Amino acid sequence: MRRFRPAASGLLALCLVLTAGVAGAVNLTPPHGRHVPPLRLPPPVDPATLVTTCDSAAASPDDGQRTGPGVSTESLDANLALAQCGDAVRLYPTTARFHYQLGRARQKLGDYTGALESYRRAAELGSPIGAFSAAVMLRDGNGVVRDDDAAARLLAACADKGDPACLNALGYQYQQGLGVGRDPARAAALYRQAADGGLASAAVNLGFLYRDGEGVARDYAEAARLFRLAADKGDAVGSRNLALFYRDGLGVPKDEALAVTYFQQAADRGDEDALIKLAFAYISGSGVGRDAAKSFSYYQQAAGRGSSDGMAGLAYAYANGLGVAADGKMAAFWMLRALAAGNEYSFDQLANHWNAWNLDMRVATQAMLRDRGLYGGELNGTLNRETLAAIRRLAGR
């Protein structure tokens, strides 16, 4: 047995040598590749910093939590927003603004129940505009069952956080006694807080309280100051009411020319009633030189915006040839349009001052009432019982 040990040892050595040689020849060293760092997950995405497709489609310019510039209700593509914001809500279910933006899409599509649900969920997640939107729907019964108590609770919750819009709306609830006990003094305090937060409409509302002595001592000077504050912030109602104060000399020196300036400012900002005031100023020469053509133009602008007072003004202009050629048929046309729109002046003129209008206009009025199927009598310009009944029917009375 000892004779074979060296041979065995030699064979083993030979095998090792051969193995090493083969390994060297075919490079059997295990591959190790490049250095790979440990796997690190990206940091979690913060939805508050994103501008998603939902934001681009449905963010509101009035939402303090928005990302991006926002989209007006008129420009909002509701079907696109519904799809994009539905995806955003599923991906980020605890982000308040996505629920609110989904609510905007639903409301524009007429899904008021769904919109209210989305607004309420947004409110629960901390969206002031969501709370405000839900409250307004409930307060006004806009497509849902009216619930003043629920509206007041929603507004109180976001007013406690200092949101100006909610403070202002809650002030209205207290002023009118909607869902809370009527308390004009509390309303004034809430309006003041909202105005101090920069909300122009709250300054206007507080101005009305000072004008009327409601919840505060009547103070025309303070009311004028508040209206001016709102006007300086671009509020049309503030501009119009400041104009009225200058026209009538309430809290400020009477200045009809300055009143016209502020009426024009309000009209430029979209206020229909300011257009009527300007039209009257140019007819009467109050603060400006008389100019019937300009007066007619302002009545046209107001009527074009759907103002029934503008329609009645056109009827007056056509009947009297003010700024336009006299035309009884056109006078009747605009008078009846105003009447159908619920205009009180038109009803009073036709029902109580019929004979003050010229015969052509009265006959044309009867003819147009007949064309509407409301009158079957003679076309003689007489305010008979049948004509009066037709006028009342058109007015919805």
Rank of each mutant, 00 (worst) to 15 (best):
P128D: 13
H353Q: 12
A332Y: 05
E74G: 05
L11S: 10
R182E: 15
L336H: 00
G103L: 11
G285K: 05
G143R: 14
D248V: 03
R247Y: 02
L199F: 13
R290P: 00
D62W: 12
D140V: 11
K233G: 00
G33T: 10
G270K: 13
A134G: 09
R121P: 00
G304S: 02
L394D: 01
D219M: 08
L244K: 04
G70W: 12
E272Y: 06
T67D: 03
F227V: 09
Y262P: 00
A59E: 08
L76E: 09
G238C: 08
Q366Y: 04
S72R: 14
S75N: 15
G342C: 10
D309M: 07
T53R: 13
A281G: 08
R104W: 13
G68T: 12
D327P: 03
G143Y: 13
P164N: 08
L278A: 01
A88G: 10
L109W: 07
P30R: 04
V237F: 11
S284M: 08
A159T: 09
D46T: 01
T29M: 01
A356H: 13
F347Y: 15
Y112W: 14
F245R: 04
L190H: 06
A159N: 11
A156W: 05
E124Q: 14
Y100P: 00
L209A: 07
E117W: 10
S297H: 06
G289K: 03
C54H: 06
N27P: 03
Q101W: 03
A200G: 13
D148W: 14
D196F: 04
